[in-house]
Design a binder for these strands. Structure first.
Lengths: 334, 334
DNA sequence: TTGTAAGCGTTATCAC
DNA sequence: GTGATAACGCTTACAA
């Protein structure tokens, strides 16, 4: 069942069938109809491989993420896929885990599959430590455009969409300070670009308010409820007091709520808590979490739109910022 | 950069290059090396489209799910992708939403993309209502093997992997009864095959214990914390008392915890609660949720393995059952 | 407006 | 063990 069968049935050449297939204008309505009827009768489906061979594109975008079961990334993947499909692109999903060799391997794999572009979802792909090597991304960008959804890397054919994390955390922290809090703990899960920006927001807020930073107040913590609780317990045991907790992820904030529950500390009276990502978790605790909404949907849609623009040859800014919101619930009283 | 360039550089024919590429035994080590060197020097990558055209396969599996941002499905998608990649298959992700026309459309789309098989993740694809039409799946199965991950539909070239939901809910409910509870509410989110099986487990447990079923005790509810809480509040307002809640999804159980909190009802003393899926949500509440672990990972791995077996021509049972576990936390006291 | 024919880069089937 | 060469099913100049 191929284009020849259709052409025979319709009594035209394969070129004409191809034209109909591709919506080429230079076909009379009459022949077009003949062809369409023939297609329907034969239940014809164009062979995607042959088409790919000629056009060297499959209308497919590679989505890479470290772990699609993570709440934030799961949402990102969902919105990315939806938006891509709206533009008639398929999505090949690729979950890499954290290992940097694997990330490189899968990026190469996607390119060898001739995807039209790649979206790196999440901040885990750009290495931020001094001396770390992001050449694997730069190299990949020589082949296809790359969009970082919630990440940043300067480079040719690389486009970044990020949330203004620094401003968001700065704002959240400042509100706590305005509400009279002076001993604010900041728990974070990642030293990625996004992670460091959030941390910067916290530090700036403290410093602008003239509050000296205490080392134990900031802590790099596995993304895990129990770990966050454990660390706060350590502070408790050491007698280091605090009256607010800001976190880079809702799960850590849930840990803070649990910590308070264990020690019968009143929220928000004695302890205010702010999470990040405004995920389902924020609705699960009692009281419910105030959380920074990092606008995954908006960010994902933007990422796709930028890629679409690039693919259709338009010029696009390499850096794109989305504004975060703070969603007020009951772990704060501002 | 193609097979001809390599063959020229290596001083052999394209057939030989192709043999090396495909690990064909009939090549001397010497020529094989020449070819490999040439490939490396030219940084050659085989064209996937041309290969697909010849072989009519892309080593790609379509994963369909209604909503990959749902916690359960996000996990399923994650494990499916991992396991498929372990078998050197790519995954095309397809989120369909709930609309049944869209499901059909995307299923056809995947087939027109010439995927080698399709995994339908979640119980939302097989329609269970009387008179509903699952022909779209049966038709698709004429083209490629279809595996239902957590679903069931008898049919040629269709394979089902499911959790023994009935037994799991029966067991959970029975334990509550054994612990002295007599007024057990069951909240559920779906009337899918899996959803009805869970409900059956609840009903059987009651009936086996000689407890007459009260209509208000069972309620079909949107998968949403607030909705669950609202319904329990309705019961409260009507004066319909209950001493335990079993749910088909952790989110509903979180709603029950919140309900208890609002009315200062002690958990588990006055109200015992059991969730389903053993998701992160179970760790967020205070007390933490006892939850039925539906073994997504095991189920996903099994689904992929079955598909791999089918693709390599083996005979596989069409029905496959995974046993659920109950994870005891602090919303129950058995 | 339509048709012919030359690619596209593999795999597979023959010969040798 | 190796090399020609014919598919595979489409797109796209170029001709008519």
């Amino acid at each position: 069942m191929n284009i020849y069968d259709v052409s025979k049935k319709a009594g035209v050449s394969i070129a004409t069938v191809s034209r109909v297939l591709n919506g080429n204008a230079n076909v009379s309505d009459k022949t077009k109809n003949k062809v369409l009827v023939a297609m329907k009768e034969l239940d014809y489906t164009p062979n995607i491989f042959a088409r790919g061979l000629g056009l060297n594109t499959m209308k497919t975008i590679g989505i890479m993420c470290s772990d699609s079961s993570d709440t934030y990334l799961a949402n990102a993947v969902y919105y990315l896929e939806q938006e891509l499909r709206r533009h008639n692109y398929d999505s090949i999903l690729c979950c890499t885990g954290q290992d940097s060799e694997t990330k490189k391997k899968y990026l190469d794999l996607l390119i060898s599959k001739r995807v039209d572009g790649i979206i790196l979802a999440g901040s885990q792909f750009v290495l931020n430590q001094p001396g770390s090597d992001n050449r694997y991304i730069l190299n990949a960008a020589k082949e296809v455009p790359i969009v970082l959804a919630n990440g940043f890397l300067p480079g040719k054919n690389i486009y970044s969409v990020m949330c203004n994390d620094t401003a968001a955390v700065y704002d959240a922290t400042s509100r706590l300070i305005a509400a009279g809090r002076r001993q604010i703990v900041y728990l974070y899960t990642s030293t990625s670009y996004s992670g460091m920006n959030k941390l910067k927001g916290y530090k700036n807020a403290l410093s602008d308010a003239g509050i000296p930073l205490r080392e134990e107040w900031t802590h790099l913590c596995t993304k895990n409820i129990q770990r966050a609780k454990d660390y706060l317990n350590t502070l408790y045991d050491k007698g280091i007091s605090f009256d607010a907790v800001v976190t880079s992820d809702d799960s850590l904030a849930v840990g803070a709520v649990k910590y308070a529950y264990e020690h019968r500390i009143a929220i928000p009276e004695q302890l205010q808590i702010i999470g990040y990502n405004n995920s389902v978790l924020a609705n699960c605790t009692e009281p419910e979490l105030t959380s920074i909404d990092s606008k995954v949907e908006q960010l994902s849609v933007k990422a796709v739109n930028i890629l679409m623009q690039v693919l259709s040859g338009h010029d696009v800014p390499a850096e794109n910022i989305i504004a975060a919101d703070i969603i007020k619930r009951n772990t704060t009283n501002f």
